[in-house]
Design a binder for these strands. Sequence first.
DNA 1: GTCAGTGCAAAAGTTTTGCATACAG
DNA 2: CTGTATGCAAAACTTTTGCACTGAC
Lengths: 156, 156
Amino acid sequence: MKKLENMEYDALLSSFKKLLKQNGLKFTTQREVILKTLYSNNDHFTPDTLYFLIKEKYPELNVGIATVYRTLNILESEDIATSISFGSQGKKFELGNKPHHDHIICKKCNTIIEFEDKAIEKRQEQIAKEKGFKLTGHLMQLYGICSKCQKEEKGE
Amino acid sequence: MKKLENMEYDALLSSFKKLLKQNGLKFTTQREVILKTLYSNNDHFTPDTLYFLIKEKYPELNVGIATVYRTLNILESEDIATSISFGSQGKKFELGNKPHHDHIICKKCNTIIEFEDKAIEKRQEQIAKEKGFKLTGHLMQLYGICSKCQKEEKGE
DNA sequence: GTCAGTGCAAAAGTTTTGCATACAG
DNA sequence: CTGTATGCAAAACTTTTGCACTGAC
């Protein structure tokens, strides 16, 4: 399992390097660290959170917040990462190399859980066909209250 | 059709008034205008967009941006509106009490077609339940090429 | 009349940009 | 070497707050 993950990361890293080269951009330690941190934590990060994580893990690098933003924007425009923003806490990023999935988001605590549902995707294709559309993608997010926050609500 | 819409708006307005009263808050012209503007445009608004729309439509009111934010936050905390936002540009609000529908959007000409699908919504409920969530809403947008643009593509 | 709501301006919080220096290619 | 990337600080945005005044109840 670990090997598989490493392989995936290596593949991700190569395609990142390739894309950088294609666009005349440079591969730097900072960019690698940002990609790696995004990858190794299976979570959705705000640029800010990511920045502090990196500062903590690689204090000698002295990465600047501006670099985090700049790199995330590159990653996003190259479709390596995608961002979702919601609530009052700004944008969150995740790597887009994962198999397709949608999100269910807790409105109280902003926890994000990923899911995938073939039945819905099939139905979406059907709907598109009915309306005469050629489907190219979709965006689906469910909003609700997670089990933890439901309990807390009852507790109060 | 127009009557139906008005009725729906009236119902929404009453429930807003009721909620305000329940919470010891006051019903003001500004709050009504914000609710109305949110209602009458089918789109999702950033607070900023909403602010300029209102300024343009009701210049005599001289509504402040702070009031827009404050009202949106009330609407959200009372579950009349939900904020979602995606991709690049800030937070967006939509009414949560409207008769529900989702959108198919043509990536070429930006045509929007509304649809509703009980099968998908049922499945969403199921997924939420599986994840321990109490579902409160969702956002679903399909992206594709509409029949008209498909023909044009072939023509070229 | 009372107290919440409002507009304004200032503050707090995010994200982007300008610039001199560092460093990948 | 050349020119992009970086860190820093300042600027540009976005959202919230403090305050004196207004207006709903």
